[in-house]
Computed example of a mutant assay.
Amino acid sequence: MPRIRAINYKRFSLLLLVVMLLSSCSKLYDSTTTIPLAHTLDVNHPVHLALLHMDKRLQELSSGQMKLKIFPSGQLGTEREILELVQIGSLGMTKVSASPLEAFVPKMKVFSLPYLFNNNKHYWDTLNGEVGKRLLNEGTAFRIKGLGYFDAGSRSFYSSDNLIKTPDDLNGMKIRVMNSQSAVDMVNTIGGSATPVSFGELYTALQQGVVDGAENNPPSFYFSKHFEVSKYYLLDEHTSIPDVIIIGTHIWNNLNSQQQDWLTQAMSEATDYQRVLWKESTEQSLKAVKEAGVEIIVADKKPFQESVKPIYDNLKDEEIITLVDEIKLIGELP
């Protein structure tokens, strides 16, 4: 019990600090406007390093008039808890996967559709184009606004004991997924048994056999140390779900146009920086897990693409169908 009280006291103290920082955000004529930003990732993760770069560029662009105060490693809670803090005005910014954003921005579920993009160019042409920019503003009714996207690579399956090479190999396997209906539908359609488990509990769940496998990108597989309890990693790259940098509308709407421009420019430069880091981290992570004894299998994607066709055939949401058509058209452009 004392341990729990200590943890809660620490969390309370951090939240109190955030509230104090937020009060500075409303004082737009002070020398420095500080925006608190929290996320759940490790300090060595490409996302955190890119956010540090964003802070540096924001300070440079604004000549010290604006900066970020970053709380990494889940100091202020889970991804959903942090997002809710942004919504209620107790926090300024966060990083969130587009998948959990479905609960607040239903159109974001389009990114959870499997094999939506032809290649990396198609992915970034979509995010940087009209479709991606439009989706960033879809959450304003929920008091959140997307500033931009970070690369989260492509998600692939990994397993503790059972080798996965084809969709049939997933039959009967309990596969951990994010708390996303789209992710559940995808795994169940392929033939697995989708099992939502929080990311923080996944290492133990894999170790104890609560789940047989999971799916994520290579850096997350490596930094989470899931490779220690997973023998196989199948590079099937079924989904490419971006990370979204979110700011509360209570902050954005109180920034003047110059401050908004500084923040937008810093975001754009951080995205370019993070893409380079992500590519390097992906290559290094795959090398590291292979050296640790994980068998990496390059998937024949065609059977997997065939297995998920029912997802597209059964789409009923007209807005999502329209988005899919728009994104497919982007992929056909020269």
Rank of each mutant, 00 (worst) to 15 (best):
E318C: 02
F117D: 01
R143V: 03
N8W: 04
K67R: 15
N128Q: 14
S31A: 08
I320R: 01
T249W: 04
V294M: 11
V18T: 15
L113N: 00
E295A: 07
P2K: 12
G331Q: 00
P219T: 13
L16A: 09
V184S: 04
K56H: 13
N119V: 03
V47W: 00
D313T: 10
L235T: 08
I7C: 04
R155H: 13
L127D: 07
Y312N: 03
E102G: 05
W124T: 09
L116F: 04
G139T: 02
Q284G: 02
Q207G: 07
A152Q: 14
Y9R: 10
V294E: 01
K165D: 05
Y203P: 09
L52K: 11
V96H: 08
D243C: 05
D55K: 13
A266P: 06
E102P: 03
Y233S: 01
F117Y: 15
V324D: 05
Q274I: 01
T78E: 11
L333H: 10
K328N: 15
F304Y: 15
E215D: 14
K95R: 05
N128G: 14
Y9D: 10
L16V: 07
R57M: 10
P310M: 11
T282L: 12
L323I: 08
E291N: 12
T264G: 05
F12D: 11
G92R: 01
T40P: 02
N128S: 14
D30Q: 14
P167E: 07
L91I: 07
S31L: 10
S63I: 02
K287F: 06
L83P: 03
K165G: 05
A6G: 08
F142R: 07
D168L: 13
P36W: 00
L22S: 05
N314S: 12
H39I: 00
V244A: 12
T94G: 06
T33Q: 11
L170F: 00
L136N: 09
T271P: 05
L76N: 00
T249A: 09
E237S: 13
L28P: 01
K302A: 12
D185W: 00
Q59M: 12
I70N: 07
V19S: 09
G89M: 02
V210C: 02
G191M: 10
N137D: 14
D185R: 02
P100H: 06
N256R: 05
W278H: 15
L28F: 04
A98K: 03
T40K: 02
H250W: 11
G139R: 01
S73L: 04
Q305E: 15
L135D: 04
I164L: 14
Y29H: 12
N171L: 09
V298T: 13
N44T: 09
C25Q: 05
P242Y: 07
L263C: 11
S99I: 06
N171Q: 11
D236C: 11
H226L: 06
T271N: 10
T282M: 14
G129C: 08
Q59V: 02
G64D: 08
A205Y: 13
E102K: 02
P114I: 01
V289G: 04
T239K: 00
T166W: 08
L52M: 10
V131C: 04
M93N: 11
S307E: 03
K287V: 06
N128C: 09
Q59N: 11
K10I: 14
S13V: 07
F71N: 01
S73K: 09
P36G: 02
L147V: 08
